[in-house]
Design a protein around this nucleic acid. Structure first.
Lengths: 154, 154
DNA sequence: GGCAGTCAGTCCGAAAAGTCGACTGACCAG
DNA sequence: CTGGTCAGTCGACTTTTCGGACTGACTGCC
């Protein structure tokens, strides 16, 4: 009766359309790490130049990165994070943490971060209302809308 | 001399090897939402059956999902999250939040979650040591090996 | 018994995307 | 003049994805 025929409308899916491809997030990681130039990103990510160029273009299109010229005569650009891009930091951190926990073998995490409070950074996701860590069990869906999804626009 | 020749070793890259493909994370989202069966996931994600089958297989291989038989005679399986899989919840939530903020147009976020404290869930990433929200500016790298690449920050 | 439907896939050919190495074109250093 | 950096693009090749059809074991219905 209410069997869905169209895929779920969901912010996870939408976000993945923007940053969900392999090299996209690595490019963003690089910018967070201070690498803003194409060559540097190619070296540090291992991405094919072609693919990286394409990803950077779409990231700029989607307003995650911004391109600024730093040399005019050989036209050279650097990539900077926009506000929206900067808000991807939790995503990067969360991704890194999972890898640290589950995919770092013997030698342990390959990169260590330190918070300005002095501690080794160990990020935690909390509910901003009550401050408690968020667990899947303690979260409920409350949206009624999902059923009534109007096929107006994508 | 210190120019990197190999890609950076990084937990972000490693994590993306496991869950970095488009349909992987959507499949995991479905399991978090309570959909454990293949058909349901096909419908709710819109993934090609082929691709989804492949993704589920690799997720099981990597210990993110677990397959359990619920019917013997037509052999039917359901997918469950392992402990490692359950720890992807922050990643899902963070991804969803970014989409809610930056890609939800007029109608607003397509799905609303509620924390057991009663508030509409608005997750926030904090430093588990000091409890303060984490911002990129307030985080420093402290790993010894990798200093080579980036020039001084400005 | 016969027909329809569910479920979890697999198989196939076409199309799209990714990859690799070479190339461009403007500059700089020796 | 040679070689190197930088930010790409180009073309050829390979891999992946996509969509639809198909399988095989069941259930439900009359």
């Amino acid at each position: 009766m209410t069997t869905r025929t169209t895929p779920r409308t969901c912010s996870v899916a939408r976000t993945l359309e923007v940053v969900g491809e392999k090299w996209s997030l690595l490019a963003i990681r690089e910018v967070f790490l201070g690498c803003r130039r194409f060559e540097e990103m190619v070296r540090n990510t291992g991405a094919p130049r072609d693919t990286l160029a394409a990803r950077l273009r779409t990231l700029v299109e989607h307003g995650v990165l911004e391109r600024r010229q730093y040399s005019e005569h050989p036209p050279r650009d650097e990539y900077f994070l926009t506000d929206a891009g900067r808000e991807l930091y939790p995503l990067i951190l969360t991704t890194m943490q999972w890898g640290d926990r589950h995919l770092a073998g013997e030698p342990g995490p390959p990169m260590t971060l330190e918070h300005h409070c002095g501690a080794r950074l160990d990020p935690q996701l909390v509910c901003s209302a009550c401050g408690e860590p968020v667990h899947a069990r303690e979260v409920r869906r409350v949206d009624p809308a999902d059923l009534a999804a109007p096929p107006a626009t994508g």
